[in-house]
Nucleic acid binder design. Structure first.
Lengths: 113, 113
DNA sequence: GGCTCATGCCAACTATTATTGGCATGAGCC
DNA sequence: GGCTCATGCCAATAATAGTTGGCATGAGCC
């Protein structure tokens, strides 16, 4: 995960740039947990937590999997995906070169499609 | 710049999480430039560029200084501030622990005020 | 003086994101 | 059956961030 495409970098950074998500990540770093549990733990609503978890998941920073508790309840456990991102001006410059976002008139040919 | 406070981390990440700013940073990594020049270079309006430059500057990712051109014009040159940020779950967790953002009921005592 | 180029800034609008509350479902437990 | 607990999702409303256009200033150049 040394360097990713500009678009992906933006996604990951945008995902990490949030106090709530940072806390969620921190909580999960201390051990996995299921949604309701985590919500109580962090003192936020489940609806809110779920949105943030989804964003974290989409960015690939956490993963989820269902698990049945002893009494048959379906619990959705989340855990952190190990990652290592080294940001430096050069890395950023390299990533920027692969940005696909419109805005400056040059839309790089996308090899993946 | 190994690890910064949660608040600062969020600020830096939020600042980097933008295609425009990534491009600005990339452009500056290739060499310093003054505002109007850079705007033409990137194909965006000065007003827009200035907003982004300000944000980058506030986050400490770039620095600016006035300089007089040969014909007396005051040009504001910007250049990238070298930085190195290594992001990992642990770093994030540590940063999250220092977050001051309200939201979960605990507002850490702020020494500065 | 009138033209160009550079900076700075604001007011207004649009687009995105964040957050809340409520509602529906499925499954044990009393 | 009625209660609790867990998930999932949506519609509506804040709250922010992004963008545009225009206007004002100061300084060379013709």
């Amino acid at each position: 995960m040394g360097d990713l495409s500009g678009d992906r970098l933006v996604e990951v950074l945008a995902t990490l740039a949030s106090p709530h998500r940072l806390r969620v990540l921190a909580a999960l770093t201390g051990g996995r947990a299921y949604v309701s549990q985590l919500a109580r733990d962090l003192g936020i609503s489940r609806a809110l937590l779920q949105v943030h978890l989804k964003k974290l998941e989409r960015a690939g920073l956490v993963t989820a999997h269902l698990e049945l508790s002893g009494d048959g309840k379906a619990l959705k456990y989340y855990e952190v995906t190990p990652f290592s991102l080294h940001l430096t001006p050069d890395v950023v410059a390299a990533a920027a070169a692969t940005l696909s976002t419109a805005g400056d008139g040059d839309a790089p040919p996308k090899g993946t499609s």
